[in-house]
C-alpha cells in the first residue's frame, strides 16, 4: 500500500478566459436556479477539480481500467480478476470507452463465456454443480408446485419435439446418403 498522496488539478479551459472581458458576464446568474438542490451541495464548488487524493491501493491483481479515467481510482475491488477466454474478451472491451456499445456488448458476451468456464472450473475441481439447487428449484417446489410441473412439462415437450424432428430428418436422409455412397 503506497503512502503517496497527490493533489490533482484538472485542466479547465474557462480559466484561460478573463471574464471581465465578456460583456454581461453573470448578469442573469441566479443561485436559486439550481435543479440539483438539495442533493448537490455547491457551497464548496470552486470549479477547480482539485482534491487531496486518498492513499493509493496498490494493485496486486490484474485490473481493467476505463479509458475515461485520468488515473487509477484510489481503491478498487479485488474479486474475480479476469482470466481465460472471458478475460481476453474483457481486456479487449476495455479498449473502448463506456460510451461505445462494443465495450458493453463484449462484456456481456464475456459474462456468458465466463459462465461456461465456471462449470468447467467446477468439474476440474471434481465438483459437479447442483444446478437445480443453485437455481432455487426446491423453493419453487415448496411454493409453486403447479408452476414447476408446467415448466418441466413444457421444457420436456419442446426438447422431445426437437429431438423427434431431428431423428425424423436424419432417418429421411439415410437412403440419400446410402445412394451417394453406393452409386
Amino acid at each position: 500500500m503506497s503512502e503517496t498522496r497527490v493533489a490533482m488539478r484538472t485542466s479547465n479551459p474557462a480559466k484561460t478566459v478573463d471574464h471581465a472581458m465578456i460583456v454581461g458576464w453573470g448578469v442573469d446568474a441566479n443561485p436559486q436556479n439550481d435543479p440539483t438542490y438539495p442533493y448537490r451541495d455547491r457551497s464548496e464548488d470552486d470549479h477547480s477539480g482539485e482534491w487531496q487524493r486518498p492513499t493509493q491501493q496498490e494493485p496486486d491483481i490484474e485490473l481493467l481500467k476505463s479509458v475515461e479515467h485520468k488515473w487509477l481510482p484510489a481503491v478498487f475491488g479485488t474479486a474475480s480478476p479476469p482470466s481465460g477466454l472471458s478475460g481476453s474478451m474483457r481486456r479487449l472491451a476495455f479498449r473502448w470507452s463506456e460510451s461505445n456499445w462494443a465495450h458493453w456488448l463484449l462484456l456481456i458476451g464475456a459474462d456468458r463465456v465466463n459462465m461456461i468456464e465456471g462449470v468447467i472450473e467446477d468439474l476440474a475441481h471434481s465438483q459437479i454443480p447442483n444446478i437445480p439447487k443453485e437455481m432455487g428449484v426446491p423453493a419453487e417446489w415448496r411454493h409453486n408446485k403447479t408452476g414447476l410441473i408446467k415448466k418441466v412439462g413444457v421444457t420436456a415437450a419442446i426438447v422431445g419435439t426437437v429431438t423427434a424432428l431431428f431423428l425424423a430428418q436424419k432417418k429421411a436422409r439415410e437412403p440419400e446418403m446410402r445412394n451417394a455412397l453406393n452409386p
Binding site: E44, P54, H69, L72, A74
Partner: peptide, 27 residues
C-alpha cells in the same frame, strides 16, 4: 472517499475514487 470533487458536493453515489472500471458510477 468523502474527499473527491463529487463527494465534496455530497454526491456520495458518484465518488471518483472507488471504481476503476467505469466513470459513470461510483463503487
Amino acid at each position: 472517499c468523502g474527499q473527491c470533487h463529487f463527494c465534496k458536493q455530497g454526491l456520495f453515489g458518484n465518488c471518483h475514487e472507488s471504481n476503476p472500471q467505469a466513470t459513470a458510477v461510483g463503487g
